[in-house]
Simulated assay, not measured.
Amino acid sequence: MPKQRITKEMVVNAAFEIARNSGMEQVMVKNIADKIGCSVQPIYSYCKNMEGLRRDVVEQVGVFIQNYVRTHIDKEDLFRSTGRVYIQLAKEEPALFRIFILHQRNGISSLDDLYRKETDPHVAEFIAGQLNISTDKAKQLHLNMLIYTIGIGTIFSVTEPGISADEIYMQLEAAYETFLKQALYA
């Protein structure tokens, strides 16, 4: 039988699957080699260091999450449903959610930096138009929901046996209503 040619894509995909099923801490050369069914040598040839491979995995996680959100969002209620989709993601893919939320973000020294780096700049304009509020108020509403969703989603993804999704969604909806009132009447 001819030798299997191991590619970088195979290594990154195997590392992604390991991270998805067991968390980033299990992304190790031996585990990747076992997953692919090869010796550790081909893995080392692609991975000058594990940090670079982990960055590749984080990038693949980001792509996965963008596709997940795009396919699960309610296009009739974009803003409100986005939070629900992230909570659903935390439930269905807790390891990927944690990787996405907890990966190192460089160049962030304020919440405004975080907002600009992590969101589409047109979202605040869209929210402002939908709710008939200023773009600044829409941005603050969006930032508040982003912070709240990250927090409650993280709690949801790390609890055992787990908080019910209904309870989480109820909290998310209460936060939305509170932040919306603040945006509308402040």
Score class of each variant (00 low, 15 high):
Ala124Lys: 03
Ala165Gly: 02
Ala183Asp: 04
Val12Cys: 02
Asp120Lys: 13
Ala33Trp: 00
Ala186Glu: 15
Gln66Ser: 13
Met24Val: 06
Val85Lys: 08
Ile168Leu: 05
Tyr115Asp: 03
Ala183Gly: 05
Val123Met: 15
Tyr46Glu: 01
Met170Ile: 13
Asn132Ile: 14
Cys47Ala: 04
Phe126Ala: 08
Thr159Phe: 14
Asp34Val: 13
Leu78Gln: 06
Ser134Arg: 04
Ile163Phe: 08
Pro161Trp: 15
Met170Ser: 12
Thr71Trp: 06
Glu92Ile: 14
Ala14Asp: 02
Arg70Tyr: 12
Ala90Met: 09
Asn21Val: 08
Met28His: 13
Ala124Trp: 05
Pro42Glu: 13
Pro161Ala: 15
Thr119Val: 08
Glu17Ser: 14
Phe156Glu: 00
Ala33Thr: 10
Ala33Ile: 11
Ala14Lys: 02
Thr159His: 14
Leu180Asn: 03
Ala33Leu: 03
Ala19Leu: 13
Arg116Ala: 15
Tyr44Val: 09
Met28Tyr: 09
Val40Thr: 08
Lys35Gln: 03
Leu180Ala: 03
Lys30Ser: 10
Glu9His: 09
Gln171Trp: 12
Phe100Ile: 09
Ala124Ile: 08
Leu114Phe: 03
Ile87Pro: 00
Asp56Tyr: 07
Gly107Val: 04
Val11Ser: 04
Asn21Gln: 15
Tyr148Glu: 06
Tyr148Ala: 10
Met50Trp: 12
Ala15Ile: 00
Phe64Ile: 00
Ile18Phe: 02
Tyr169Pro: 00
Lys48His: 14
Asn49His: 04
Ile127Gln: 03
Ile133Met: 05
Ser22Tyr: 01
Val63Ser: 10
Ile99His: 06
Asn49Gly: 06
Tyr68Met: 01
Phe16Ile: 09
Gly129Asn: 04
Ser110Thr: 12
Leu111His: 11
Lys117Gln: 15
Asn13Phe: 10
Ile127Gly: 05
Glu76Ile: 05
Ile108Gly: 02
Glu160Phe: 15
Tyr86Asp: 01
Asn144His: 12
Glu17Lys: 14
Arg105Gln: 08
Arg55Lys: 11
Glu25Cys: 10
Glu25Lys: 14
Glu125Asn: 07
Pro2Trp: 10
